[in-house]
Design a binder for these strands. Structure first.
Lengths: 337, 337
DNA sequence: ATGAAAGCGCTAACAC
DNA sequence: GTGTTAGCGCTTTCAT
């Protein structure tokens, strides 16, 4: 197999002026045709279109947006790409944005607020039509930037707090509480917890707080916990449950910081002949598709990630009235509890 | 919870001229300071920096790139966001790009060549520093656009064919062949196949071709197959294997179009007491982390997706000598074969 | 219906 | 070292 060598022959792409000249019209007329705005005779329209096609004209949006001070870029800054939940969100957002002729500039903060601030500045330098951020926790510097920019802002994924502009998400605290009440309702009393490097994942912390709160209301508490140092993963969940059980504290149910972790726990039980849910019940968070088709569907909280992405996109495009939408979540009563 | 109302107070962000004026220097001097280019006295540098900070100045890259005819955007067009493999790739690419001060414009083609062409045009209108595409199959229109633009191009994920410019990936055909030889080597002879809406996923087709080819060389063939109509998923894999077994054709091993599908098959077996691998062996593709921690690690082909993203990013930044890099793959001999 | 001309905010010569 | 100026390619009045 050989790669060609002639690809990057220096090419100067055609400009609007080139198209206008080739069509024998003025620049502004060519511009009108190419954007479908303003009255143009059918004859000129055809001429211009033909010239543009022939020259393989691709408009320069740098120039276009600079001149019109309006961009079709939307910035999206997410914490991570290692778990499917944020791609799910992106998918929903991207679909709506693309349908409205917008383009996504995507950046990943790795759950670091400082990095998020830098990325916000970087994205704002493109003068985007809007910006979507995950969560409510941003540095003061980031907030100042956002306020100064006047860009439409949508925060997502978290309604446990006050947003800066628009907001769509659900209450992680309540999700934790619902998980706890479900376990309590099923009769579990000795409940453990396995989480991941949780100090960085603020929403996982909120879930755990909600979980503990609901236990407390029932006169219970988490009897044993194991918190990993790395990111969430099936492996971490499996190891976490193993270590939790090795503590020797008797538990009859275990709450995991999310479905990846829970699936790891589930696999640990399968491997060691631990009966689910008789010997040990397992509960996750996110309602990942893959966990719904395990031999015993994982009990979990389904979060409408793609739908949240769609709503966020509509909000950022100014198509939603509401400034605040709680998109909720759904308890999945699976076979593991 | 109340949302504030004062966020979108119309704000006109400061320009370079504003900063220069506030600092009492010329525009070009301010520009030099803010970009750290050219000689500036420490005193003026401090003045300008202070003014910029005070005005919360965010440079306008539309203007900057237009003036300098050089952008720090890199376009990445992937087929899908529903499976973790492309986010894995994005993660690797994005990490390198960000480290070099570049930003990703990401678009999703949904495996549709026509849509990819539109997205290429759209991305090119931002005059990106480079473009990353998945696979080798593009419309003629897309190729013309790419050639005319002169943008540095990197194609990824597929070395079974000739690329347009730069290329990093692995041979899907060989991956299929390796899977087949592995199964043959373990003594399986009656081999089935479960795939997803495969006509759209060209690389899955190539894997299957490689798989069949290697069987043929051994005097074997796929004795039964089941191809779903939707995208790949755990559910589709589970249903697919169920239907395959319902055909009544005896098989001792099953090759799946990827790990999601294979995991579905694995779950089907667990649910129905089918012994793995004694009664049925299972083989996937991708080497997803989550499948490696199942009670029996899934036998699969690990594809270095994040590493491929890193290489692709380096290529697009012009930091790789080679025009063609085969990044290979790794046979994972798990417990399911 | 069409064209001329003035910017959009910045960079890159080029002077001083 | 620093300021002046001419564009980058487009959109947008404003004439005609």
């Amino acid at each position: 197999m050989t790669q060609r060598d002639d690809f990057n022959a220096l090419t100067t792409s055609a400009t609007l002026a080139d198209v206008a000249r080739a069509a024998g019209v003025g620049e502004s007329t060519a511009s009108r045709v190419l954007r479908g705005k303003g009255a143009v005779s059918e004859r000129t329209r055809a001429k211009v279109q033909a010239a543009a096609d022939k020259l393989a004209y691709v408009p320069n949006r740098l120039a276009g947006n600079l001149a019109s001070t309006g961009s079709n870029l939307v910035g999206i800054i997410i914490p991570s790409l290692t778990n499917i939940v944020f791609p799910d969100f992106l998918r929903g957002a991207n679909q709506v944005l693309e349908a409205h002729g917008h383009q996504s500039v995507i950046a990943v903060s790795e759950y670091e607020a400082e990095r998020e601030e830098r990325l916000i500045a970087s994205v704002l330098s493109w003068r985007p039509a809007g910006l979507i951020l995950v969560g409510l926790d941003h540095t003061e510097g980031a907030k100042a930037l956002l306020r100064a920019s006047g860009t439409r802002l949508v925060e997502v994924y978290d309604t446990d707090g006050v947003g800066l502009d628009r907001l769509v998400g659900f209450s992680n605290r309540q999700a934790g509480a619902v998980a706890a009440r479900h376990l309590i309702g099923r009769g579990y009393r000795r409940i453990g917890y396995v989480g991941h490097r949780i100090h960085l994942d603020i929403r996982a912390v909120k879930r755990f707080e909600g979980f503990e709160g609901a236990l407390r209301e029932a006169g219970l508490s988490v009897v044993a916990q194991e918190i990993g140092t790395g990111t969430s993963s099936v492996e971490a969940g499996r190891e976490g449950l193993k270590r939790l059980l090795a503590q020797g504290i008797e538990i009859d149910a275990c709450y995991f910081s999310n479905d990846d972790m829970a699936l790891g726990g589930y696999f640990h039980c399968l491997s060691h002949g631990i009966q689910i849910p008789n010997q040990l019940a397992i509960f996750g968070h996110n309602g990942l598709d893959l966990a719904r088709f395990a031999p015993q569907p994982l009990s979990s909280i389904r979060t409408p990630r793609a739908a949240m992405g769609e709503v966020a996109a509509r909000m950022v495009l100014g198509q939603e009235q509401a400034k605040l939408i709680d998109i909720g979540f759904e308890l999945l009563e699976g076979g593991t509890t």
